[in-house]
Design a protein around this nucleic acid. Structure first.
Lengths: 164, 164
DNA sequence: CTGTGTGCAAATTATTTGCAACCCT
DNA sequence: AGGGTTGCAAATAATTTGCACACAG
């Protein structure tokens, strides 16, 4: 469990580096560095929870009471266009991932937590796919199931879980 | 192109078998076999396009003009609960996949076509994930990129709809 | 018969957009 | 100074829900 947290949350130095890189990237591309943007970028990068726009809005609101949800959406779109965050649709809502390293998403079907898993190799017939004429850009591997916490909480299964 | 279609579309016998299996499953679980449901199940299983609810609605409407979109959603939910179809979110819309075999989704970022790729092995550190306490149920591998058609057309005007 | 399923419409939820005022650069 | 950016509100878009009637079992 502690190992999860270590996997999920990069240390402070890495966060600072990444934050600086994104800020630099925004400036370099001619985007204005408003306080709102800085706060949103920071919230996305620092949150290990793959937050939704609404959740980012809540996080930023704590420091920036006047911010609007529309601004959050617009900034997330900018970050997405720059390739600095990736969208992750979970149960009908879009969540955001600022982790650019290839990794697996462990998605809990019960509590909808998303855990980043970065250890071990992933392989699939990429050459054959490329040979077919498809041009891969990036891939995403999601493992759906139950997180450890929910495994524990469902070990005594309720008898009333099926109803036609 | 034709090779894709062969990969994507199971032959008629397999479709019939699968259709019968799902029908049987519905009956067995106590669901009523209404003509609407039959038509929706058939549409999902026979469409190789990973259709959205709206598209399934259009397909079924051709034969069943009085059907409602709500009924389509409700039936899809039943099929999802039974595990007979899987949801596939693409660019903010939920699409449905009746192919239960493990396979890769090749998703075109330009025309949003989804191609099923069933050849070759997929591997990832499933044991380590399981050992961590996470209980995997199923996984999904998406390869995002450009489909052959869109690779060829990258200098042509973008289409407004998915490729046929 | 009995209650599940259907169809319609209204409600909900997520996201986008138009626009006037604002403020980085 | 000037155009990108913000915040508000209204507009879309997708999906869900409530309810009266229909029909499968």
């Amino acid at each position: 469990m502690v190992q999860y947290l270590q996997k999920m949350i990069p240390n402070k130095e890495l966060l600072q580096e990444r934050l600086a890189a994104v800020i630099h990237r925004l400036r370099e591309q001619g985007y204005r560095l408003t306080p709102q943007r800085m706060a949103i970028v920071q919230a996305v990068l620092e949150s290990p929870d793959h937050p939704s726009a609404e959740e980012i809005y809540q996080l930023v609101s704590a420091v920036f009471p006047m911010i609007s949800l529309a601004t959050v959406y617009k900034t997330l779109e900018v970050l997405k266009d720059l390739g600095e965050v990736v969208e992750l649709p979970v149960e009908g809502r879009t969540r955001y991932d600022g982790n650019l390293q290839p990794h697996i998403h462990l998605i809990c079907e019960r509590c909808h937590t998303v855990i980043d898993w970065s250890d071990g190799a992933i392989s699939f017939p990429e050459e054959a796919i490329t040979a077919s004429g498809f041009r891969p850009h990036h891939y995403r591997l999601e493992v759906h199931g139950l997180c450890p916490r929910c495994v524990a909480e469902t070990s005594a299964p309720a008898p009333t879980d099926r109803a036609p």
